[in-house]
Computed example of a mutant assay.
Amino acid sequence: MAHNQWAFTDSEREAVYKAIFSRRDVRREFLPEPVPEPVLRRLLAAAHHAPSVGFMQPWDFVVVRDRDTRAEIKAAFAQAHAEAAEQFDPASRETYRGLKLEGILEAPLGICVTCDRSRHGPVVIGRTANPEMDLYSSVCAIQNLWLAARAEGIGVGWVSIIHHQRLREILAIPEDIDVIAYLCVGYVRFFHERPELESAGWLERAALDDLIHEERWQGGQAR
Protein backbone atom coordinates (compact mmCIF):
# COMPACT_ATOMS: atom_id res chain seq x y z
CA MET A 1 0.00 0.00 0.00
CA ALA A 2 1.37 3.42 -0.93
CA HIS A 3 2.46 5.64 1.92
CA ASN A 4 -0.27 8.07 2.98
CA GLN A 5 1.35 11.49 2.93
CA TRP A 6 -1.42 12.90 5.13
CA ALA A 7 -0.94 10.39 7.95
CA PHE A 8 0.74 11.38 11.20
CA THR A 9 4.13 9.96 12.04
CA ASP A 10 4.10 6.78 14.09
CA SER A 11 4.82 8.65 17.34
CA GLU A 12 2.19 11.29 16.61
CA ARG A 13 -0.41 8.64 15.84
CA GLU A 14 0.44 6.70 18.99
CA ALA A 15 0.01 9.85 21.06
CA VAL A 16 -3.50 10.39 19.68
CA TYR A 17 -4.54 6.83 20.46
CA LYS A 18 -2.90 7.02 23.89
CA ALA A 19 -5.04 10.04 24.74
CA ILE A 20 -8.17 8.24 23.57
CA PHE A 21 -7.53 4.95 25.36
CA SER A 22 -6.25 6.45 28.62
CA ARG A 23 -8.89 9.17 28.98
CA ARG A 24 -10.90 8.70 32.17
CA ASP A 25 -13.91 10.23 33.88
CA VAL A 26 -12.16 11.58 36.99
CA ARG A 27 -13.94 11.92 40.33
CA ARG A 28 -11.77 11.53 43.44
CA GLU A 29 -8.19 11.95 42.18
CA PHE A 30 -8.13 15.74 41.69
CA LEU A 31 -5.33 17.87 43.12
CA PRO A 32 -6.12 21.36 44.46
CA GLU A 33 -3.45 23.20 42.46
CA PRO A 34 -4.91 25.63 39.91
CA VAL A 35 -4.78 25.05 36.18
CA PRO A 36 -2.53 27.78 34.71
CA GLU A 37 -4.32 30.21 32.45
CA PRO A 38 -2.24 29.35 29.33
CA VAL A 39 -3.11 25.66 29.79
CA LEU A 40 -6.80 26.43 30.28
CA ARG A 41 -6.74 28.53 27.12
CA ARG A 42 -5.25 25.60 25.20
CA LEU A 43 -8.04 23.32 26.42
CA LEU A 44 -10.73 25.83 25.47
CA ALA A 45 -9.08 26.41 22.09
CA ALA A 46 -9.13 22.66 21.46
CA ALA A 47 -12.84 22.60 22.33
CA HIS A 48 -13.47 25.60 20.07
CA HIS A 49 -11.88 23.73 17.14
CA ALA A 50 -14.37 20.89 17.32
CA PRO A 51 -16.50 20.13 14.26
CA SER A 52 -19.85 21.89 14.25
CA VAL A 53 -22.87 21.60 12.01
CA GLY A 54 -22.92 24.43 9.47
CA PHE A 55 -19.80 25.79 11.23
CA MET A 56 -22.24 27.45 13.64
CA GLN A 57 -19.95 26.96 16.69
CA PRO A 58 -22.91 26.93 19.08
CA TRP A 59 -20.92 26.47 22.28
CA ASP A 60 -20.02 28.80 25.15
CA PHE A 61 -17.88 27.96 28.18
CA VAL A 62 -18.66 29.18 31.69
CA VAL A 63 -15.47 28.81 33.78
CA VAL A 64 -16.28 28.41 37.47
CA ARG A 65 -13.52 28.88 40.05
CA ASP A 66 -15.38 30.35 43.04
CA ARG A 67 -15.73 27.75 45.79
CA ASP A 68 -19.07 29.10 47.04
CA THR A 69 -20.52 28.72 43.56
CA ARG A 70 -19.14 25.21 43.31
CA ALA A 71 -20.64 24.42 46.71
CA GLU A 72 -24.06 25.38 45.30
CA ILE A 73 -23.45 23.08 42.36
CA LYS A 74 -22.40 20.29 44.74
CA ALA A 75 -25.68 20.72 46.65
CA ALA A 76 -27.60 20.50 43.37
CA PHE A 77 -25.73 17.28 42.57
CA ALA A 78 -26.54 15.86 46.01
CA GLN A 79 -30.24 16.45 45.46
CA ALA A 80 -30.24 14.80 42.01
CA HIS A 81 -28.07 11.95 43.31
CA ALA A 82 -30.55 11.18 46.11
CA GLU A 83 -33.41 11.21 43.60
CA ALA A 84 -31.50 8.89 41.29
CA ALA A 85 -30.75 6.38 44.04
CA GLU A 86 -34.47 5.76 44.51
CA GLN A 87 -34.81 4.72 40.86
CA PHE A 88 -32.52 1.70 41.19
CA ASP A 89 -33.69 -1.67 42.42
CA PRO A 90 -32.79 -2.42 46.06
CA ALA A 91 -29.96 -4.75 45.06
CA SER A 92 -28.19 -1.97 43.16
CA ARG A 93 -29.18 1.02 45.29
CA GLU A 94 -26.53 0.67 48.00
CA THR A 95 -23.82 0.01 45.42
CA TYR A 96 -24.90 3.16 43.60
CA ARG A 97 -24.84 5.23 46.79
CA GLY A 98 -21.31 4.06 47.52
CA LEU A 99 -19.91 5.19 44.17
CA LYS A 100 -17.97 8.45 43.94
CA LEU A 101 -19.61 10.17 40.97
CA GLU A 102 -18.29 13.75 41.01
CA GLY A 103 -15.35 15.93 42.04
CA ILE A 104 -17.05 19.31 42.15
CA LEU A 105 -15.24 20.63 45.22
CA GLU A 106 -12.07 18.58 44.80
CA ALA A 107 -11.32 19.97 41.31
CA PRO A 108 -10.05 23.56 41.29
CA LEU A 109 -12.42 24.64 38.55
CA GLY A 110 -15.53 23.68 36.66
CA ILE A 111 -16.51 24.38 33.08
CA CYS A 112 -20.14 24.49 32.05
CA VAL A 113 -20.54 23.91 28.32
CA THR A 114 -23.67 25.32 26.68
CA CYS A 115 -25.31 25.37 23.26
CA ASP A 116 -26.89 28.43 21.66
CA ARG A 117 -29.33 26.81 19.26
CA SER A 118 -30.34 30.15 17.72
CA ARG A 119 -26.81 31.18 16.79
CA HIS A 120 -26.69 32.33 13.14
CA GLY A 121 -30.45 32.09 12.74
CA PRO A 122 -33.07 29.37 12.38
CA VAL A 123 -31.76 27.79 9.16
CA VAL A 124 -28.30 26.22 9.45
CA ILE A 125 -26.53 24.06 6.89
CA GLY A 126 -26.75 20.43 8.00
CA ARG A 127 -29.37 21.04 10.69
CA THR A 128 -32.47 21.20 8.50
CA ALA A 129 -33.37 17.50 8.57
CA ASN A 130 -31.91 16.81 12.03
CA PRO A 131 -32.19 19.91 14.23
CA GLU A 132 -30.43 18.20 17.15
CA MET A 133 -27.11 18.32 15.29
CA ASP A 134 -26.15 21.52 17.10
CA LEU A 135 -26.36 19.67 20.42
CA TYR A 136 -24.10 16.96 19.05
CA SER A 137 -21.64 19.64 17.94
CA SER A 138 -21.34 20.90 21.50
CA VAL A 139 -20.66 17.35 22.68
CA CYS A 140 -17.85 17.14 20.10
CA ALA A 141 -16.36 20.25 21.74
CA ILE A 142 -16.44 18.46 25.09
CA GLN A 143 -14.64 15.45 23.67
CA ASN A 144 -11.97 17.69 22.16
CA LEU A 145 -11.45 19.37 25.52
CA TRP A 146 -11.34 16.00 27.29
CA LEU A 147 -8.67 14.55 25.01
CA ALA A 148 -6.58 17.73 25.09
CA ALA A 149 -6.80 17.69 28.88
CA ARG A 150 -5.55 14.10 28.99
CA ALA A 151 -2.57 15.11 26.84
CA GLU A 152 -1.85 17.86 29.40
CA GLY A 153 -2.06 15.42 32.32
CA ILE A 154 -5.31 17.05 33.42
CA GLY A 155 -8.39 15.13 34.50
CA VAL A 156 -11.98 15.85 33.50
CA GLY A 157 -15.16 14.55 35.09
CA TRP A 158 -18.61 15.02 33.53
CA VAL A 159 -21.26 15.63 36.21
CA SER A 160 -24.40 14.27 34.55
CA ILE A 161 -26.37 13.70 37.76
CA ILE A 162 -27.65 17.23 38.11
CA HIS A 163 -30.71 19.10 36.92
CA HIS A 164 -29.72 21.48 34.14
CA GLN A 165 -32.32 24.01 35.24
CA ARG A 166 -30.59 24.25 38.61
CA LEU A 167 -27.24 24.83 36.87
CA ARG A 168 -28.92 27.49 34.77
CA GLU A 169 -30.10 29.27 37.91
CA ILE A 170 -26.76 29.07 39.72
CA LEU A 171 -24.71 30.26 36.75
CA ALA A 172 -27.23 32.82 35.42
CA ILE A 173 -27.48 31.08 32.05
CA PRO A 174 -30.30 32.53 29.90
CA GLU A 175 -33.37 30.39 29.36
CA ASP A 176 -32.81 30.21 25.60
CA ILE A 177 -29.33 28.68 26.03
CA ASP A 178 -29.16 24.89 26.48
CA VAL A 179 -26.94 23.47 29.22
CA ILE A 180 -24.94 20.53 27.82
CA ALA A 181 -22.46 19.58 30.55
CA TYR A 182 -20.78 20.58 33.78
CA LEU A 183 -17.17 19.41 33.80
CA CYS A 184 -14.80 19.15 36.78
CA VAL A 185 -11.27 19.99 35.62
CA GLY A 186 -7.88 19.75 37.34
CA TYR A 187 -4.56 18.00 37.72
CA VAL A 188 -4.76 14.53 39.24
CA ARG A 189 -2.75 12.20 41.46
CA PHE A 190 -3.11 9.46 38.86
CA PHE A 191 -5.37 8.12 36.11
CA HIS A 192 -7.05 4.75 36.58
CA GLU A 193 -5.99 1.93 34.28
CA ARG A 194 -9.66 1.11 33.60
CA PRO A 195 -12.88 3.12 33.94
CA GLU A 196 -13.95 3.10 37.57
CA LEU A 197 -17.42 1.68 36.89
CA GLU A 198 -15.82 -1.19 34.99
CA SER A 199 -13.38 -1.84 37.85
CA ALA A 200 -16.23 -1.67 40.35
CA GLY A 201 -18.11 -4.37 38.45
CA TRP A 202 -21.03 -2.10 37.58
CA LEU A 203 -20.75 -2.93 33.86
CA GLU A 204 -18.18 -4.46 31.53
CA ARG A 205 -16.89 -3.04 28.28
CA ALA A 206 -18.86 -4.52 25.39
CA ALA A 207 -16.99 -6.51 22.76
CA LEU A 208 -16.43 -4.37 19.68
CA ASP A 209 -17.40 -7.20 17.32
CA ASP A 210 -20.83 -7.34 18.94
CA LEU A 211 -21.44 -3.71 17.96
CA ILE A 212 -20.42 -3.75 14.29
CA HIS A 213 -23.02 -4.32 11.58
CA GLU A 214 -22.09 -4.88 7.94
CA GLU A 215 -24.24 -3.14 5.32
CA ARG A 216 -27.44 -3.17 7.41
CA TRP A 217 -28.64 -3.88 10.95
CA GLN A 218 -28.24 -7.56 11.78
CA GLY A 219 -30.46 -8.17 14.77
CA GLY A 220 -29.34 -8.62 18.35
CA GLN A 221 -25.80 -9.71 17.53
CA ALA A 222 -23.87 -7.63 15.02
CA ARG A 223 -21.71 -10.53 13.88
Rank of each mutant, 00 (worst) to 15 (best):
H3L: 15
N4T: 09
Q5L: 14
W6K: 13
A7C: 06
A7R: 10
F8Y: 08
T9V: 03
D10N: 10
R13L: 14
A15T: 12
A15R: 14
V16K: 02
A19M: 05
A19S: 10
F21S: 12
D25Y: 01
D25A: 09
D25H: 04
V26T: 07
R27T: 10
E29P: 00
L31I: 04
L31K: 15
E33W: 02
P34N: 05
P34R: 00
V35P: 03
P36C: 04
P36D: 09
P38L: 05
V39A: 11
L40C: 11
L44M: 04
A47T: 13
H48A: 13
H49K: 12
V53R: 07
P58Y: 09
F61S: 03
V64L: 08
R65M: 06
R65C: 10
R67G: 00
T69P: 01
I73D: 01
K74Q: 15
A75G: 00
A76Q: 04
A76Y: 05
A78Y: 02
A78I: 01
Q79P: 00
A82D: 12
A82E: 11
E86P: 01
Q87D: 09
F88A: 04
D89A: 11
P90L: 08
S92R: 14
R93E: 10
R93C: 06
E94A: 15
T95L: 14
L99S: 05
K100N: 11
L101S: 06
G103Q: 03
L109N: 04
R119S: 02
H120I: 03
G121Y: 01
P122K: 10
V124I: 11
I125K: 13
G126C: 06
A129S: 06
N130Y: 14
E132L: 08
L135V: 13
V139E: 03
C140E: 08
A141W: 04
I142H: 10
R150I: 08
R150L: 11
A151P: 02
E152N: 07
G155W: 04
G155L: 10
G157M: 11
G157I: 04
G157S: 13
W158K: 07
V159D: 00
V159A: 09
H163A: 13
L167K: 00
L167S: 01
L167F: 08
I170F: 09
I170R: 07
A172E: 13
P174S: 13
P174L: 13
E175V: 08
E175N: 14
I177E: 12
D178W: 02
D178M: 03
D178H: 07
A181F: 02
Y182D: 05
L183V: 09
V185Y: 01
G186K: 05
G186L: 09
Y187L: 02
F191V: 10
F191I: 04
H192F: 06
P195A: 07
P195G: 05
E196Q: 15
E196G: 01
L197T: 07
G201V: 11
G201K: 04
W202S: 08
E204K: 15
E204P: 00
A206C: 07
A207N: 12
L208S: 01
D209A: 14
D209N: 14
L211F: 03
I212C: 05
R216F: 12
Q218L: 08
G219P: 06
Q221F: 11
A222Q: 02
R223F: 15
